[in-house]
Simulated scan of single mutants.
Amino acid sequence: MKKEYILYFDSGTSNTRAYLLDREFRICDSAKRAVGSKDSAIAGTNRVLIEGMKALYDQVLAANSLTDGDVEAIYASGMVTSPYGLKEVPHLVLPMTVRDFADSLYPFHEDTCFHRDIFLVPGLKTLSDDFSFVNNLRGEEIEIIGALEELKAERDVENVVMLMPGSHTHGIYIQGDQITGIISNFTGELFYALKQDTILSPVLTSDSLELDEAMVRKGIENLERFGFNRALYICHAMRIFEQGTPQQRLSYGESVIMGGVRQSLEYYCEHFWKECRTVALVSDEFMYRLFSMILEGSRYIDRIIWMPISDGKSYGVSGLKKIVSLKGERHE
């Protein structure tokens, strides 16, 4: 009987999503489970992750009246290749073409629960004699390839930084079909820590998704004028002395916390990525508006392309389709 389906896991630190795909890589179904590499780290064994992924696998198959025999291949990306994932797989070193990347899938035979091969997507890294220029990512690499495929189909772009806000905000430099560099920034996790465990919590806690453009500009101005620590204190002082509305204070705080991404990006564009004038922002609408304001007036970036993300769309799935098609074979 012909096997008609592919199962793709996108597994992070805290959550794992499973996508059931047909042979054309169209999403037939998906499900999410609160299990990730963090759970393996806490338990001291990856058994909890493997069992959680298998339960998610069984759930998706059962919901579609399928069995393991209907699944042609299983792929997984993200933190599954970390020390607390399914199998630690070394990062691939940039620069690298998309075609070279497609040839680097790692076959891992999981014999505890699945009893079959799972093809793991490695992360990426840059190397340097100066540790100041070392960067790495896991999980975003397959999304980059999927987003790049869409970007090249719709836009005339050769040299572009793909900016992906998240717990870490990565900027990935792409020249043609070659991924040449990464710059990684500590952002979402920093925002969360400041919001949860500091006196800035009242400022950074807001249900509003509106941004005050003047306060975003002020945050960038003070970040460059005073540095991060003083600029962030001003955010606290605004609340103490009742300056501005809650929306304005949040806009200022977001700008200070995320503004370092502009600083690092401009440094790289000045010294390394000199042919780049375009940023492709893979994000939700809020982050698109925020970074449009943050990058306004940049000497190095004069074009921003928004690539929206949503629950019903996965650049990871698009990236998987691309690398499997380049590999030119189906895995048994």
Rank of each mutant, 00 (worst) to 15 (best):
K2L: 10
K3F: 03
Y8A: 15
G12C: 01
N15P: 06
N15F: 12
Y19L: 13
Y19K: 09
D22A: 12
F25M: 11
C28V: 12
K32E: 13
V35G: 06
G36R: 02
A43P: 03
G44Y: 15
G44A: 13
R47L: 11
V48L: 14
E51N: 09
G52D: 02
G52E: 02
Q59N: 09
L61S: 02
A62I: 00
N64H: 11
S65G: 00
T67S: 11
V80W: 07
V80Y: 02
S82C: 11
Y84P: 01
E88V: 06
P90I: 04
L92I: 12
V93N: 13
L94K: 03
P95L: 12
F101G: 02
A102Q: 03
L105E: 04
F108V: 11
H109E: 08
E110F: 05
C113S: 02
R116S: 08
F119H: 14
L124E: 05
L124V: 12
K125D: 01
K125T: 12
T126M: 07
D129P: 14
D130T: 13
N136C: 12
E143N: 10
I144Y: 13
G146I: 08
A147G: 13
E149N: 07
E150A: 09
E154K: 15
R155V: 05
V157S: 14
E158K: 11
N159K: 12
M162G: 00
L163T: 00
S167H: 00
S167M: 06
T169G: 10
T169A: 07
G171F: 09
Q175G: 12
I182P: 08
I182S: 03
I183S: 13
F191M: 07
Y192Q: 15
A193T: 10
L194H: 10
K195T: 14
Q196N: 09
D197M: 12
L200S: 07
V203W: 13
S208C: 11
K218M: 10
I220G: 02
L223M: 03
Y233W: 08
I234L: 15
M238Y: 09
P246L: 14
P246S: 11
S251K: 02
S251V: 10
V256W: 08
M258C: 15
V261Q: 11
V261K: 09
L265A: 13
L265W: 05
C269L: 13
V282F: 04
E285T: 14
F286G: 06
Y288G: 01
R289W: 06
L290E: 10
L290F: 08
M293A: 15
L295S: 04
E296N: 02
I304Y: 09
G312K: 14
V317N: 08
S318L: 15
K321N: 13
K321A: 15
V324F: 03
V324M: 08
S325W: 01
S325C: 04
R330G: 05
E332V: 04
